[in-house]
Each structure stands twice: as C-alpha cells, then as structure tokens.
Amino acid sequence: MKFAVIVFPGSNCDMDLYYAIRDGIEQEADLVSYKEESLDGYDGILIPGGFSYGDYLRSGAIASHAPIIKEVIRLANEGKPVLGICNGFQILTEIGLLPGTLTNNRQNRFICKQVELVVENNKTIFTNKYNLNEKIMVPIAHGEGRYYCDEETLWELNENNQVVFRYSQDVNGSVEEIAGITNKQKNVLGMMPHPERAIESILGSDDGLKLFKSMLETQKNGVQI
C-alpha cells in the first residue's frame, strides 16, 4: 500500500507519519509537497499535524487553498482513505471534507499529554483492528482542538455513526467529547490525538499502530463497513 504524506510549510508531524508507515506497518510512503498537483498512484492520503502557515488567520485556513488540496478532494470523493491528524483534521474541516470546526481549547491553553480515547465505531477502514468501546492511550498536542458544530450537525454525526473516537473525559471542551470523526462515506477520518506518536511501547503507547494496520487490512482483504 502506497501512502502520500502531504507536507505544508509548518507541518511538523510529517516524519512521524512517514515513520509509522515505513517502520510501523512496513509499507511505502512518500513525502509530497503542498505545491504538487497530482496524487495519482497513491492508495491513501495522510495529512500530518503541525502549524501549517503558522496557523495564520485560523488553523488550517490557508492550507485549505494550497494547490494539492484539489487532488485531496478528488481522491476523497473517489473513496480513497484520507486521514488528517491534528492540524490535518483542522485542514479537513476547513476544506469541507469533514463537518464542524476546531477552535481554541476551552481552557485557552496548549495541552500536550497522553489521553484515553474510546473507540466508538470499529466498523471503519481506520478502526477495524480495534474492539468496539476499546480504550486506547494516545497523546494530544494542540491549542485549537475544541471540536464545535451546530446541533443539527451533531445529530447527524451520531445518527450516522460518524463519531469514531471520543475522549473518555473532557479534555478541551469539545462537544460530546468528540476526538475524531469521519465523513458520511466513512473514508475520510479527522482526529486531534496523534496515533502516529503511539506506535511503539517504548514511547509510551503502541495503541495507535492498529489504526494504520486497519487501513492496510482494508486494502488487502476489504472490510465490511
């Protein structure tokens, strides 16, 4: 399976993702510049964390107009897996592939710590290796991670099982402790916690590895979702 890791000016988790793919699940990965205009030949798109364009204007706002974005949208619409982590999640909401918005943490501070997540939906291409309601430890590192959406959107997210990860307790003021959501088609996942920083127990947790293994499993054997 061949992944593209999109690199924006200010991305800083791109190498962690590259490492998670190359060493974690032993698949191919390329670092692809935001200036590129083609993503032909890739089976999955990964949008890393960081501070694209210094978070100027709003996190993800300027990256959402980069040249590569049209291709990200095209592949998402074709059903290819697209995973945005942290700033990647913020970018996916700014380009409209995912509903809602990430804004300043309720406590108005940057938070960097290990948190417990609950797997709320394990019938997705990103989570089929987890058990339903499995509790996993994954780090967060964000200042603008408070998920916000209107009530109608929230109702739809719950109705369609689009909430994939929730924090097991309130960490940043997100509505209903939402930590990660998919689009309706379930091929685009955005999450604030960093599974790519949790792929080896020596670094505190390897609970994130199953997310990448799930994507590989789907590609190899298909998964009923």
Binding site: L57, H65, C149
Partner: peptide, 8 residues
Amino acid sequence: GLLANPNI
C-alpha cells in the same frame, strides 16, 4: 471562503 469560517 477564507477570512471567516461560517461555522463559527
């Protein structure tokens, strides 16, 4: 499309 996020 850019300066404001209509969600918030």
